[in-house]
């Protein structure tokens, strides 16, 4: 799969689970190892969404401190890497919204009624992020599958929140997301094979 980062460590859920449990037992050095494995992903998402290095560093620091201090990750439910991915994106989007809201308030306070250019939307950032290969692959998913994966991994919403927002049973949301991911794999895998 051509677009997978060459720097990404070989993902092994067993290693992450062991490190997480070691961290929970108080082995502080486990946090350094978790950082080494996932900081690139957390910082990468932070930088993409926030657009500047200072804020990306700040958010990356917050994410790892929260991971160390709060037992919100459940290894029985899923992978640590996905957990960090969703958490980072969700917090980054919160910061973008907060920044936009502060800017709006500032403009109102200054009584500045000069027509403004529209702020960069989350959707625009998403589109800028995707490679052509991924955009093409996503077209093979049903619109419902695309929508659910988008809401989960670009808007940082939980599946319960998605179920409520779409008025769809949670079980349906889960199965559509899973089928969507498996379809995506088939398409990207076949694209990759066609490269050679």
């Amino acid at each position: 799969m051509g677009s997978v980062s060459a720097n990404r460590p070989e993902y092994n859920p067993q290693i992450d689970t062991d490190l997480w449990l070691a961290l929970r037992r108080g082995q502080a050095e486990a946090l350094g190892k978790i950082y080494d494995r996932h900081a690139g992903l957390v910082y990468g998402i932070s930088y993409k969404v926030l657009g500047n290095t200072q804020e990306a560093e700040d958010l990356t620091q917050d994410i790892f401190i929260k991971l160390a201090e709060r037992a919100t990750y459940d290894p029985d439910r899923g992978s640590l890497r996905t957990f960090l991915m969703i958490l980072t994106r969700s917090r980054a989007i919160d910061r973008v919204r907060s920044r936009q809201s502060t800017q709006r308030s500032k403009r109102v306070w200054q009584a500045d009624y000069v027509p403004e250019s529209p702020p960069l939307s989350i959707d625009a950032m998403v589109q800028a992020e995707k490679s052509e290969q991924v955009k093409r692959a996503l077209t093979h998913l049903s619109s419902e599958q695309q929508q659910i994966l988008h809401m989960a991994y670009y808007e940082g919403l939980s599946q319960s929140a998605i179920a409520k927002k779409l008025s769809t049973p949670l079980g349906t949301i889960k199965s559509r997301a899973r089928r969507g991911l498996l379809t995506l794999r088939k398409i990207l895998q076949s694209d990759s094979q066609n490269d050679y």
Partner: peptide, 22 residues
């Protein structure tokens, strides 16, 4: 491992953080 890579290809992105951050 394979499926995690797919998810990240579609929805993740990586950059090297500054050395002092760790």
């Amino acid at each position: 491992t394979a499926l995690q890579a797919v998810l990240e290809t579609a929805y993740g992105t990586e950059s090297t953080p500054p050395a002092h951050l760790k």
